[in-house]
Design a protein around this nucleic acid. Structure first.
Lengths: 149, 149
DNA sequence: CTCAACTGAGTTGTGCACAACTAATTTGAG
DNA sequence: CTCAAATTAGTTGTGCACAACTCAGTTGAG
């Protein structure tokens, strides 16, 4: 029987670590005028441009309730444009503007800054990443079983 | 030079894992009518009752901007009461109501459910918790250096 | 003793995260 | 061919998380 002590709980460690990292990103991203979730969307688009909202949602595990207003803000900031698909009027394709593409240069150094802050070597990052991915999958499977979508 | 690829980044793994766990808590806490941050406050109070808002904030790393409305909701739900300190009128002490104390019984099983969902043994939990704590400390120290509070 | 600086809680405003919903469009079973 | 079901974005409402602020109360340098 696990205890109810805050210190014992992995979830609180996860919650704290996630907030700490986000708060570091806040400082680092100030220069680019991006929030962390906005940065994630830009990363996805820098990797592959011209994506459907649905595809971005699948990659980042975010629904339209989160993405729609976020993308609207990115468009207002002049970083992306949105176009309804001609062949399927339900879909919206998100593309980088020139400003959005150019911003990639300013972002080049960010991963190294974050890496340095974590003081983990490449192997440590890979191992932790693998453990977190396993954890995420396991927890999501359990939740699906408890409360089917 | 680290890449800008989303898949490579530990931070995204952390972000995903944290959201997965929170979403499991959402299901598990439905019964208690608590959100995850509210549950954290209740955990802190079950461990030690009659705490100042300032103390809760220090333990959970939350400021009054987050805690004040959260505590107001817990009070509205009848789980806690708030009293200005007589000896220092700036401070507010948060105490469990009888309902709030009783709720602890309903929460007893939660850590085991979460533990099961993570499919980690006790040693695995302890190790990961230690790594996350180290990561949090390292990242926070780095951020402090970049942007002094 | 005084008052400027500090402290603790609360408020306001912004942006996620997510549930629940709407609206428009597409698809496919019959 | 038709229309009910499914799909895709978007909207609305709630609750964090946090910056920036207010305000009352306390403290301590001079």
């Amino acid at each position: 029987m696990a205890s109810l002590r805050l210190d014992d709980q992995l979830c609180f460690g996860l919650y704290s670590a996630s907030r700490a990292v986000t708060s570091l990103y806040r400082v680092v991203l100030e220069d680019l005028d991006l929030t962390y979730p906005q940065y994630l969307v830009m990363l996805a688009l820098w990797e592959q441009d011209h994506r459907l909202v649905k595809e971005l949602g699948a990659e980042l595990n975010l629904d339209s309730g989160t993405l729609s207003p976020l993308l609207k803000r990115l468009q207002t900031a002049g970083l992306v444009v949105r176009n309804r698909q001609a062949d399927d009027e339900r879909s919206v394709r998100v593309s980088l503007s020139e400003t959005g593409q150019a911003l990639r240069e300013k972002a080049q150094g960010i991963p190294d800054v974050i890496g340095a802050a974590m003081s983990l070597d490449e192997a440590g990052v890979a191992r932790m990443r693998a453990e977190l991915d396993r954890l995420t999958e396991s927890v999501n499977a359990y939740r699906e079983a408890l409360a089917p979508a």
